[in-house]
């Protein structure tokens, strides 16, 4: 593997979900906006106008992958140091966040597992849920040093139904969260090459759209 290929594998951004199941489409939708932002940043860095404001720092090279099945994540994590995963979250019980709320959770090698809700139906709509896929990766020695999960609380997951207004409104917030994590990585790498930034405890918190 070339140095460039290894750099590309170092950071993985994943959107999980089924585009045809209402709010489960949030992962692919957020990845679309993140891809747009990455392209704009790359263009902006190359085309800085004379005398214009300083361009925003380029984001680090990364792979963007949309997965309908969280189990595929186990393969994608191989060789990865930082994974940012966007997925729909089913929040249940007293104190559950409102649909459209954006949550940020962290795990990774040497870190505790993601908190799994006692009701497994709150784990998502996939056969092998995201927490299970990550723990399988850990058991196989493929857990990245750092995993950030950007979760968007879903309202509905019915087959064929459109995305709810609340979750649609959360797409920019979730996408900016991903871009912010990448920017933090780039800044930390510039200041202290090879020394990753301090990692997220979990849960980090809720960001209102």
């Amino acid at each position: 593997m070339s140095r460039a290929e290894a750099d590309d594998r170092r950071i993985l951004v994943v959107g999980i979900g089924n585009p045809d199941r209402a709010d489960d489409a949030i992962g692919p939708a957020v990845l679309g906006l993140v891809a747009e932002q990455l392209a704009l940043r790359a263009l902006g860095a190359r085309a800085r106008p004379a005398g214009g404001s300083a361009p925003r720092a380029p984001l680090p090279p990364c792979r963007l992958v949309v997965l309908p099945d969280p189990m595929r994540l186990v393969d994608e994590l191989d060789g990865c140091e930082l994974a940012i995963v966007v997925d729909a979250v089913v929040a249940a019980g007293p104190g559950a966040q409102q649909p459209g709320a954006v949550l940020l959770l962290g795990t990774g090698q040497g870190q505790p597992a993601l908190p799994v809700a006692p009701d497994p139906t709150a784990g998502g709509t996939h056969g092998l849920g995201l927490p299970a896929a990550l723990e399988l990766a850990r058991a196989l020695g493929r857990m990245p040093d750092r995993v950030a999960v950007v979760g968007v609380v879903a309202q509905q997951l019915a087959p064929g139904a459109p995305m709810s207004a609340q979750v649609r409104a959360a797409i920019p917030t979730a996408a900016m969260q991903v871009v912010g994590l990448l920017a933090t990585e780039a800044a930390a790498d510039a200041l202290h090459p090879g020394d990753p930034p301090p990692w997220l405890p979990h849960p980090v918190g809720t960001l209102d759209p």
Binding site: M71, D75, L136, L140
Partner: peptide, 25 residues
């Protein structure tokens, strides 16, 4: 209880299952 627990003792078996699944993919 599940594949995760099984992977701790039978890592090679789970790795081979993932390879087979990947071939189908």
């Amino acid at each position: 209880d599940g594949a995760i627990e099984m992977a701790a003792d039978h890592r090679g078996l789970v790795e081979s299952a993932l390879r087979m699944k990947r071939a189908g993919n």
